[in-house]
């Protein structure tokens, strides 16, 4: 039984690991659109001295 677990779980676990690792990489490379929009609004607010940004 232990032997079966050993042989079944190793490939399954390696596959899961590979999947998770690729998920990490994907998230890391993915462009953070919402954060970029927030950053753009902040910079534009400062450059144009918009009142909405003064309170922030």
């Amino acid at each position: 039984m232990r032997n079966i677990l050993f042989f079944v779980s190793r490939p399954v676990l390696s596959m899961l690991l590979a999947l998770l690792l690729s998920a990490c990489v994907t998230i890391n490379i993915y462009f953070p659109a919402a954060a970029a929009e927030k950053a753009a609004d902040k910079i534009i607010g400062e450059v144009w001295q918009l009142e909405e940004n003064v309170e922030e």
Binding site: L17, L20, C24, I27, K38, A39
Partner: peptide, 22 residues
């Protein structure tokens, strides 16, 4: 060890994502 690594890896993307501020 595999299980522990799995758990750590499961939370890693969230940690990376939480820091998504430019």
């Amino acid at each position: 060890r595999f299980l522990l690594l799995l758990i750590v890896l499961l939370f890693l993307p969230h940690a990376v994502y939480a820091g998504a501020n430019l």
